[in-house]
C-alpha cells in the first residue's frame, strides 16, 4: 500500500550526495596534489612509513571512538586507556613475565578504565564528556605516581623476548602485525556496529536514547559495553604502540585523542547517512595522515601542520553541520 509517495527532499538528497562526493573528491585531490608536489610522497618507503607510524595506532583508537560517538557519547579518556595498557604491558615484560600475560595485563588495565567510565556514566549519571574528562585527569596522576613523575620505561634487548619481537616486526605473509591487528579490529568493529543487534542499539542510542529506553532495551548495559569496548580497543592500540617503540612513554596516548575525534567526525560527514561508520572513520584517519605527511614533505613544519589540520577539521565540521541543519 505504498501508493502515495510523501514528499522526499530530493533537492537535499542530491545536495547531500554531492557533498559526499565533494569530500571524497577533495581527498583524491589532496592525494594527487601531494603526489605531484611532495617529493617522495608515493614512494613505497614513505607509504609504508605513513601506514605503520601514522595510521595504524590512530586508526585503532579512532575505531573505539567511533563506537562511542555512534552511541551519542564521547570518550576523552582514550589516551588514558592507551597509556595504562602500554604501561602495565611494558612493566610486566620488564618484570620478566611472558608476552601473553603482559598483553592480558595491559588489556585488563584498559578495560578497568572502561569500567570506571561506565560506572560514572551509568550509575552516577555524569555526562560522558565530564566523566571521561575526570578520568583523564586521574589517569595523568596514576601515570605520574607510577613513573616518578613521568619517566619513560625503555626495554633492554634482553627483556624483550626475541620471538615476540619478531612477530611485532614482521607479521604474517610479509604483512606487518600491526596492520593485521588493524584489519582484525576494523572487521570486528564493523560487524559490531553495522551488522549486529548490538550495533543497532548503539546507533539508536546515538539517534534517540529515549526511544531506545521506551522500546524496552537496556540502555545502561549497552552504554557500558560501548565504553568498555572503546577502552579495550584503545588498550590494543597501547600494546601495539609500546611493542613498536619497545618502551612506555607517559602521556603519549593523549596525542591520539583529538585526531581520533576529528577522524570520526570527518567520517560522519563523509558517510551517506551522516552517522559514524567504520569506513568513514578509516577514511578520516587516512585523510589526516596524508595531510600531515604531505604537508611535512612539502616543507611545512609540525606547527603549520597542526594549523592546517585544525582548519581542515573546522571546514569538515562546518560542511557536515551545515548540511544537517539544511536537512531539518
Amino acid at each position: 500500500m505504498t501508493d502515495t509517495t510523501p514528499p522526499t527532499p530530493s533537492r537535499n538528497l542530491s545536495f547531500e550526495a554531492l557533498s559526499n562526493y565533494a569530500v571524497i573528491a577533495a581527498f583524491v585531490l589532496i592525494v594527487v596534489f601531494f603526489a605531484i608536489f611532495a617529493d617522495g610522497f608515493l614512494s613505497g618507503e614513505n607509504l609504508m612509513n605513513l601506514v605503520l607510524n601514522k595510521v595504524v595506532i590512530l586508526a585503532i583508537v579512532a575505531l573505539g571512538m567511533t563506537l562511542v560517538i555512534a552511541a551519542g557519547g564521547i570518550d576523552l579518556s582514550v589516551g588514558v586507556s592507551v597509556d595504562l595498557s602500554s604501561m602495565i604491558f611494558i612493566m610486566m615484560i620488564a618484570a620478566g613475565m611472558s608476552g601473553v600475560f603482559a598483553v592480558a595485563g595491559g588489556l585488563a588495565a584498559a578495560i578497568c578504565v572502561g569500567i570506571v567510565n561506565a560506572i560514572l556514566i551509568n550509575r552516577l549519571k555524569i555526562n560522558p564528556f565530564l566523566a571521561t574528562l575526570g578520568v583523564l585527569f586521574i589517569g595523568e596522576t596514576v601515570q605520574r605516581v607510577s613513573t616518578q613523575g613521568g619517566v619513560p620505561i625503555y626495554l633492554t634487548r634482553g627483556e624483550y623476548s626475541a620471538p615476540f619481537d619478531a612477530i611485532v616486526r614482521t607479521g604474517l605473509f610479509g604483512v606487518p602485525t600491526p596492520v593485521i591487528v588493524l584489519i582484525v579490529a576494523a572487521l570486528a568493529v564493523y560487524i559490531a556496529l553495522h551488522r549486529s543487534v548490538f550495533g543497532r542499539y548503539v546507533s539508536a542510542l546515538g539517534a534517540a536514547p529515549d526511544v531506545v529506553r521506551y522500546s524496552g532495551i537496556r540502555v545502561p548495559l549497552h552504554m557500558s559495553m560501548v565504553f568498555i569496548a572503546c577502552a579495550a580497543i584503545s588498550g590494543v592500540a597501547g600494546i601495539l604502540l609500546s611493542s613498536t617503540v619497545r618502551s612506555y612513554v607517559p602521556f603519549s596516548g593523549d596525542a591520539f585523542l583529538l585526531d581520533a575525534i576529528g577522524a570520526t567526525f570527518i567520517g560522519t560527514a563523509i558517510s551517506a547517512e551522516r552517522r559514524p561508520s567504520v569506513f568513514g572513520t578509516l577514511l578520516g584517519v587516512l585523510l589526516l595522515a596524508v595531510m600531515r605527511n604531505g604537508l611535512l614533505l612539502i616543507g611545512w613544519n609540525f606547527f603549520w601542520q597542526q594549523v592546517g589540520i585544525g582548519v581542515l577539521v573546522f571546514l569538515v565540521l562546518g560542511v557536515s553541520f551545515g548540511l544537517r541543519r539544511r536537512n531539518d
Binding site: G262, F303, V307, F314, G318, R325
Partner: peptide, 25 residues
C-alpha cells in the same frame, strides 16, 4: 554554522595551538 560547541572549539583549539607554535617556534 551551528557546529556542536564541543567540536567547534576543539578544532579552534587546534588552530590556536598551531599558530602559537608557529609564532614562537
Amino acid at each position: 554554522l551551528r557546529i556542536m560547541p564541543l567540536l567547534a572549539t576543539l578544532a579552534v583549539m587546534n588552530i590556536a595551538e598551531g599558530l602559537e607554535l608557529t609564532l614562537t617556534e
